[in-house]
């Protein structure tokens, strides 16, 4: 049986929680905490949405010149 976490502990581990890098037990403890703590839940939602926005920055429409180069690569090797 794990002890209940305090909000500060949740905040400290929050980003690793969202990265799915915590051990299962700690992950469950955070999930349980957030079922009942609106403040931490709100913060987690914000970080999650911000991350979704940031990950958009990893996508850009590839120009036609690049597409042509890629076709040439596939043809010639």
């Amino acid at each position: 049986m794990t002890q209940d976490l305090r909000c500060e502990e949740v905040i400290e581990k929050l980003l690793e929680y969202l990265d799915r890098e915590l051990d299962t037990e700690t992950e469950h403890a955070l999930a349980r905490h957030m079922e009942t703590c609106r403040a931490c839940f709100t913060r987690a939602e914000f970080e999650r949405k911000l991350r979704a926005r940031v990950s958009e920055a990893g996508k850009a429409k590839a120009p036609e010149s690049l597409r042509r180069r890629v076709r040439t690569i596939i043809e010639h090797y």
Binding site: G58, K59, A62, L66, I73
Partner: peptide, 24 residues
């Protein structure tokens, strides 16, 4: 994956020509 590779390359190299070379 091409748009993601190109987008990532752009963020890393910070310029279009280098990003294209990197993806190619």
């Amino acid at each position: 994956l091409l748009d993601r590779l190109y987008g990532t390359a752009l963020r890393l190299t910070r310029n279009r020509a280098d990003a294209e070379d990197l993806v190619a």
